[in-house]
Design a binder for these strands. Structure first.
Lengths: 345, 345
DNA sequence: GTTAGCACTCTTTAACGGTGAGTGCTAACT
DNA sequence: AGTTAGCACTCACCGTTAAAGAGTGCTAAC
């Protein structure tokens, strides 16, 4: 859809004005914001056309215009100029990220918290996917005579642990056998190959030790699955209450939707693996609960390949021009940090 | 303050009615709920006295009555009969708790989630305090040439870990020295004695190894502090939005208050160490944000001594008679589960 | 001490009219 | 053909008013 230059300027001004004030914007109010001078009648004519093209709408006959989802979309794709990231914002992000320490999951959580606070939106992130990671180390830490804690460390620096209970005494000789099995069958193995087929062939090879070792080995499989799974981390949900006059009483539904997490997970994983930031506006999101919300999300890469995403969720009248660069900056930084941890041997 | 039997019945009926409907209750509506028959005028007279005594109040002159905080207090202390816990409720709690596995922190989180869902309130819990726990085991898991993951296991089954970075090579001999120090100075030590004084005297005794071992040993101290600290776990905050016509737009403030956590921590730790359930109604809580909320909280014991608390937060017109037994039942069950994990060696 | 009766208070709801912002349209202008 | 001034029109918003209804406090009789 082609738009004349003047229509573009008008659409852009309406979007920006509406983002700023939250009020429908009328033809007169626009005149100030425009850098060329025409009469309000001209603007009205143009706006009427923008309405019939589907970029603007009127809440009711005699009100100003507000952007439709398509209006925002056009704005984001063609009109918006990304504002450069504020020095103070940059510092806050950096300070927040660096204070998180080196645990990848903690880092992601912290990143979300910073982003939420900064943008006054809810933040969603996924922990680094274990895809492509392999098992680096497994330890069995005896806790009692019948219990041991199995600790699994992946090549990506993620640590998972679980207590395991056995019917037989976990004597030193059992532990030794366990370590043998671990050394020959697990160390160095990609997480994704610890599947049922692999486990079954392992059982076959264990011989008579199967009964004593099985509980321990099963836990390894659990942990591998666990490390493979990416988790959804939420932050700043209550920020959305700031827009409660926008969300009305559907705020609860939205928060519940976020809390449930599974649909969100799909949403995030469908983000294209491209480098840029992805913006989903209102009904572009395939979930009823997000109809009035926009999602700004970006992937973070570790060693150059996509490993997870971080994004924010807010009302559709979010400040795209300001927030997109923030999300971008943050994900880049997180990627750098994680890459550093990875390669830091 | 003494109340005639009739006043008690009337107060009780008002509280229960108001809890059920959320509407101010008038004299006529009460007649049905009372098991003796008098006229509405008599009830009115009694209610007027209850107002002047401070147990009831009127939102405005010609409305029904609603209980004051003191009214709820009298109800909880003298009038309420705890309803027996529902069979289906019991099953849901048990199912939820048992599905949590044996990690104490996970268990607490799950318990909170179940309670929140069941009561339609927000849940707050504290993880088991490390007070009185000692260091059971410490492992150093090399991750790279300059990094190792230190894992600390307490006598209470809590596992904490942290990655530690050293300037010098973490060769096998360094690790061996580390284990020696651990064995002689840390294993069996109560968490609370790993303080700065202890660390200083340790540094003195390390001699020339101090530079290689110090980073590792410092992490142990961090982990001990970490294990000692109790954490606040929240759940079901968004449930509070169900009462948004009750909370109005102070809902955000309330949620933020919960999210911050520190004040909550004080609140919970001030729960008497007695066995029962503690109820704090409205302004009995020393925080402005909780003025319109009630807290029902109970401690859980491990091996007979108080280790943490679990509770719920909701509007003051919460169903005390039904929820108090639920909280009680849940905390007892959690205590049992944790005690079992503890003693299960 | 209890109750019937009644006037009174105060909220809620709907209806009403005025105001103002903003529009769409038409006719004149460049 | 595009632009603009002018104007009638629409509709949310606001304050007022009126009626309805719920519930009360009080008084006087039981």
């Amino acid at each position: 859809m082609e738009l004349s230059e003047r229509k573009q300027k008008i659409l852009g001004a309406v979007v920006e004005q509406y983002i700023k004030t939250g009020e429908p914007v009328g033809s007169k109010a626009l005149l100030n914001a425009l850098d060329f001078s025409v009469s309000s009648a001209t603007v009205r004519n143009e706006m009427a056309e923008l309405v019939s093209m589907g970029f603007l709408e009127q809440p009711h006959t005699s009100a100003g215009r507000i952007p439709t989802n398509e209006g925002y979309r056009y704005y984001v794709d063609h009109l918006m100029v990304n504002s450069t990231i504020d020095e103070s914002v940059r510092r806050r992000i950096e300070a927040g990220i660096h204070s998180a320490g080196s645990d990848p999951e903690k880092l992601i959580e912290k990143a979300g918290a910073v982003l939420a606070e900064l943008t006054d939106c809810a933040a969603v992130s996924t922990t680094p996917s274990g895809e492509g990671a392999s098992i680096k180390r497994i330890e069995a830490v005896p806790v009692g005579t019948h219990t041991a804690m199995i600790v699994l460390l992946t090549s990506t620096g993620v640590l998972k642990s679980k207590v395991c209970r056995s019917d037989t005494d976990l004597s030193a000789s059992v532990i030794e056998k366990f370590y043998n099995v671990v050394k020959t069958s697990f160390i160095g193995l990609p997480l994704s190959s610890v599947d049922t087929a692999m486990m079954q062939s392992l059982v076959a090879s264990l011989g008579s030790d199967v009964f004593t070792l099985m509980p321990l080995v099963t836990v390894i499989s659990d942990l591998a699955q666990d490390a493979l799974r990416t988790e959804i981390v939420l932050g700043g949900q209550s920020n959305l209450l700031h827009y409660s006059n926008y969300y009305g009483n559907s705020a609860y539904e939205l928060l519940e939707f976020l809390r449930r997490g599974e649909p969100l997970s799909k949403l995030l994983s469908s983000v294209s693996s491209q480098d840029g930031v992805e913006v989903r506006i209102g009904s572009e999101n395939p979930y009823r609960q997000l109809m009035k919300s926009s999602v700004i999300v970006s992937n973070y890469n570790i060693d150059g390949s996509k490993r997870g995403s971080i994004g924010i969720i807010g009302p559709t009248r979010i400040d795209y021009a300001k927030l997109i660069p923030s999300v971008k900056f943050l994900t880049n930084l997180v990627g750098e940090m994680l890459t550093k941890t990875f390669n830091d041997e």
